[in-house]
Simulated scan of single mutants.
Amino acid sequence: MQITVHAAKTQLFKLIEAALRGEEVIIARGSEPVVRLVAIPKTTFKIGLLEGRVTGPGPDFLEPMDADALDLWEGGR
């Protein structure tokens, strides 16, 4: 669907709904297409994504670092 900027101003809600349904919405100045209106895909965050794939004990972040590792973190070589 191609629509002019002037018409898009008055029909923005309808254009957003069309883009959410997957329709291609092009906004044009006169007859020249200048903008494509697209929906932003929804992303989901899944907790436990690596559950069962990572084995063994993880690092203990409450234990002090050894001197060599601490030196690297502090910019030493």
Rank of each mutant, 00 (worst) to 15 (best):
V25A: 04
L12I: 09
G56M: 11
L12T: 08
F13W: 14
L70N: 03
E32R: 07
L72P: 01
M65T: 05
T10Y: 09
G56Y: 07
A28R: 04
W73D: 07
L70F: 02
V35W: 11
T44W: 12
R77Q: 00
A18G: 06
E51Y: 05
P64S: 05
K46E: 15
E74C: 00
G58V: 10
L50T: 06
L20R: 13
I26T: 10
D68I: 00
R36V: 13
T55I: 14
L50S: 06
W73G: 01
L37H: 02
D71T: 03
D60T: 09
G48C: 09
M65I: 03
R36G: 04
H6Y: 13
G52H: 02
F13K: 15
P64W: 05
W73A: 04
F61D: 04
Q2Y: 09
Q2G: 11
P59R: 11
V25C: 06
D71Y: 04
A67Y: 03
M1E: 09
R53M: 02
V25L: 10
R77D: 07
L62T: 14
R21S: 13
I3K: 01
L62F: 10
L12S: 09
L72M: 00
G30W: 08
D71W: 00
V54A: 04
I40W: 05
G58H: 12
G52W: 01
A8D: 06
L62W: 09
E23K: 14
K9A: 03
G30N: 10
T4V: 12
S31F: 09
